[in-house]
């Protein structure tokens, strides 16, 4: 079935099998391998992307459910060579170890700051409850999000 989506500002047309999950379409068909698959149970959040601005787990959607939508993946955040403020804050605060959860963490954080530009530490922790970090680097992740908020990361 025909699928038309806009990803990171580019429009794509493909014929997809209905059972194709959005994450597989992004990774295998479009070659955008930023979002990861970390589980089979919709638990880990490594696959988080923005669907019309709101965070979603792309492993728990059919690609066809996103027909006509605008998607942002971690590849679409930076402005050329200039990282997005949330990316910059993750780097400055050592908010990643192996980096597997990072694309999902960053996208969930961008979604949070769009809704709540000045969260406190508790709100950041609650907002990231759907994202697991097997390296357990949560303290620095929370610090990074607070730092990004302080730097006006919502823009």
């Amino acid at each position: 079935m025909q699928l038309e989506i806009t990803v990171n500002g580019r429009r794509y047309h493909h014929d997809v099998e209905p059972r194709t999950l959005l994450i597989h379409h992004l990774r295998d068909q479009l070659g955008l391998t930023g979002a990861n698959v970390g589980c089979d149970t919709s638990s880990c959040g490594a696959c988080t992307v923005l669907l019309d601005g709101a965070s979603v787990k792309s492993c728990t959607m059919l690609a066809l459910q996103a027909d006509g939508a605008t998607i942002t993946t971690v590849e679409g955040l930076a402005d050329g060579e200039i990282p997005h403020p949330v990316q910059a804050a993750f780097r400055a605060n050592h908010a990643l170890q192996c980096g597997f959860c990072t694309p999902g963490m960053v996208m969930a954080s961008v979604s949070l700051l769009a809704e709540n530009p000045h969260p406190d530490a508790d709100e950041v922790r609650t907002a990231l409850e759907g994202n697991l970090c097997r390296c357990t680097g949560y303290h620095n992740i929370v610090r990074a999000v607070l730092d990004a908020a302080a730097q006006g990361g919502a823009e």
Binding site: T60, G130, N131
Partner: peptide
């Protein structure tokens, strides 16, 4: 309910 991503859908 669940987490923000779940609640968005």
């Amino acid at each position: 309910v669940g987490d923000p991503q779940v609640r968005h859908r």
